[in-house]
Amino acid sequence: MPFWLELIINILFAYLASVGFALTINVPHRVLNLAGVSGIVSWIIYWLAMRASMGRLISNLLGSFAIGILAIVFARRKKCPASVFYIPAIVPLVPGVPAYQAVRELTAGNINGASDSALRVIIVTGSIALGMLLSNMFVEIFFRAKKFYKEKKNSYNN
């Protein structure tokens, strides 16, 4: 399959998946489309990073970092909490499948497979949470710097 076709499929499916999840958790109707757009951004960044063989930890961190910043930007524009955007968008990244696999391997009696999956859950969850925290920090620093320079400029003008 050529690269452009894969890219189109991934963009389309990321949008559909995020909007589908947004429907099941009852997001406000006016932000349905933007939730899908933020889903595209997080998944495409993760997918490209995985294709560039950056490893699972870095890819998840980059994806959730981007989505953290985008969610705050959208939230300021639409005047609603940021979680409205990042919860549907983060759904393709979260490790629900390895969590289920870990329990299934346990019920099948395969301890090694279970511990592998459980470790993967811990790594992916940790990197997603870390990415969101980093993005929160960056946005805070950005606004603080903006405010600081504004005040400085005003004091020069006076």
Partner: peptide, 17 residues
């Protein structure tokens, strides 16, 4: 509509994973 959302989510994420 919620059920359609769940169906779309399942199918698309399966292909993506």
């Amino acid at each position: 509509i919620q059920v359609i959302g769940a169906a779309v989510l399942s199918a698309t994420l399966m292909v993506m994973f």
